[in-house]
Amino acid sequence: MQSEKYRVVAGPEAYFTPGAARMGIVLPEPGEGHIEGQIVPEEEALEYAARKLIEAKNPTIHPGPLVLWNWNEKAAKKAKAIKVLADVIPARIIPMADYRPKYPKINPEVEINPNHPNLTIWHNKEDVCVFVGVHCHMANLSLKIIRGGTSCFTIALCAQAGHEDANLSLRDVSPEKILRLAEWVNKLKSIPYVRPAGRTSNDGAERKSDKVFAK
């Protein structure tokens, strides 16, 4: 086992991407999150997620059926919070409306499908994406495929125990926690050394913000 060495970094990793859990990555406990497989306090994960979203050229939120549909009061509240987050970043919203295999193909402009999420990521040149309201098994499938075939950084805002296969995952995500993430985005945007969306360099050059937030 390579439990101490393995990091859940953005891909493209491989055609047969190893499951992060198999590589020794464990899920965070309540009050924690993980960044690339390393367990961190929740607030730190929120801050890092906010920074990634601000820096991204094409940040995109992928809400799933659990928040797209007005099932109950909680779903409605969460939908409102997600909209706030999307407006604050600002991020595009492309829904994962269902999980069925769609033939002959999906329209990557309007949706993402868990069976081939890479198509939407590629088409829209997404560099950071957020999964929220997607059922666990479909989120795991999608996150692994994205890590395998794209360079997109994945953030899972999970209402349950989190996702090992995301590059960053929070757990027990409530509408309030999403709003806290939006607050972090707002706060960091006001700091001059965090680059605004659309200004991230793709040449791998070190960014000022990397130094600021480096451990």
Binding site: L68, A79, K80, K83, V110, E111
Partner: peptide, 14 residues
């Protein structure tokens, strides 16, 4: 009961 959250009604697939 089968309603889309209003925040997402404009981005749902047709």
């Amino acid at each position: 009961k089968i309603q889309i959250c209003p925040e997402f009604s404009d981005i749902m697939p047709p």
